[in-house]
Design a protein around this nucleic acid. Sequence first.
DNA 1: ACCTGAACACCGTTCAAGT
DNA 2: ACCTGAACACCGTTCAAGT
Lengths: 238, 238
Amino acid sequence: MTDRPADGPLPPRPRRRATTDPARTEPRLTRAEIVRAALRLLAEQGYEAFSMRRLAAGLEVKNPSLYWHVQHKEELFDLIADAVVGECPLPAPAGAEDWSGQLAEIARGLRRAMLAHAAAVPLLSGRPFLGPNGLRLADRVAGLLRGAGFDDRTAGHGYLLLLYYVVGFVGQETAFGPGETGEARLHAMHRTLAELPAGAYPHLTALSTAITERGLDDRFELGLRGLLSGLAAELPAR
Amino acid sequence: MTDRPADGPLPPRPRRRATTDPARTEPRLTRAEIVRAALRLLAEQGYEAFSMRRLAAGLEVKNPSLYWHVQHKEELFDLIADAVVGECPLPAPAGAEDWSGQLAEIARGLRRAMLAHAAAVPLLSGRPFLGPNGLRLADRVAGLLRGAGFDDRTAGHGYLLLLYYVVGFVGQETAFGPGETGEARLHAMHRTLAELPAGAYPHLTALSTAITERGLDDRFELGLRGLLSGLAAELPAR
DNA sequence: ACCTGAACACCGTTCAAGT
DNA sequence: ACCTGAACACCGTTCAAGT
């Protein structure tokens, strides 16, 4: 019972080469290369064009080869997601003074990382961030909150709150397809709201311009501020 | 230019029958029936077993028939998502007094609706809620917040915040597959955290029991409370 | 108006076989 | 250890044709 968990998505299968093997050849594929190629394919062709076969073709390899490196598409998606999360810069674990600002920085960084791979966002959406990079991020956030004086439970839910917000926000802002810019999407959304049958959704139509007149960055900051002040309100003694 | 927008997912194609047709037969399929059957198929076989062909089989119809009622799978998914959202009960639009409590009720209702169709959750995750039920929900929430004294922009972002939180939370709590109960998933998560390489993620491992010792309902309420108090902090005059 | 047969152009994945 | 050929069991979608 001391072996590693069998079902987790993460234990990368051992990639040690047998040292006794005389006729060594470099493997043509690496997990890292596969993930890089997958991100490129996503960027160039979009999410719905992604397939294992296309990915293999891009790597100049027959498609069954991928299955030596990766159990299945889902596992590859786990790796891709973790790679994207890994591009979120983490501030050096500093003092407890400005926890709120540091959290905001992390949130912005995660959003930027996701926007840099907009076509990969749909595949991040429902996925728990349990890859090494995701865990590192979680640990950093948890550390920040604990350092600030939050009790363990609140620290935990603070992390989740932040995560849900960023993933939810970016998920929606990229929902209309990666072809258009964020601002173009905002305008489309505004038009959609403005075109609703008059009087059917009075509050929504009233909100339509207020919601869309400022940019997406602004909106992100607004929600982020609310979220952080909500957290601050639960800080115990101080 | 007065015709309805061509690309929106929502304008249900006109389903009026020609009144002059003499030999009338009832159509064997309806959009509503298709959606119902789809939800049943999801519940019985799970998300990854879902296919248009299986759905057609369940309806005792050949699969191309579906394409007379629905443009493509994506459009069907829009309909399914809206049906699930439609099961969220909306409190009667009451006075402004307890906006926070009413918002919480809506959030709980939406979570329950999603959990009642756990296998449909992955398909809700990245999707904007622009169906009639989604719009109704948005309008109600917006109305609540405006009635409470929030300005239009804050009302808008309040709605989004709530939505992201609920969808994010339920997305994660159902992420490990619909086969297991929520509590079983919590234990699995706890085990995952506890089994992390010692010392690699100190804060996470420290949090692992605190995070999982209370049930998911508790955790949901905690985050919800934080979110609502964050919103309250932005209420202007009062 | 509504449904079907037949077909197109794909998928993810397995597995015996090569090197 | 790593990659391939060939195949299996599917997909979503189209379209001419039936009623």
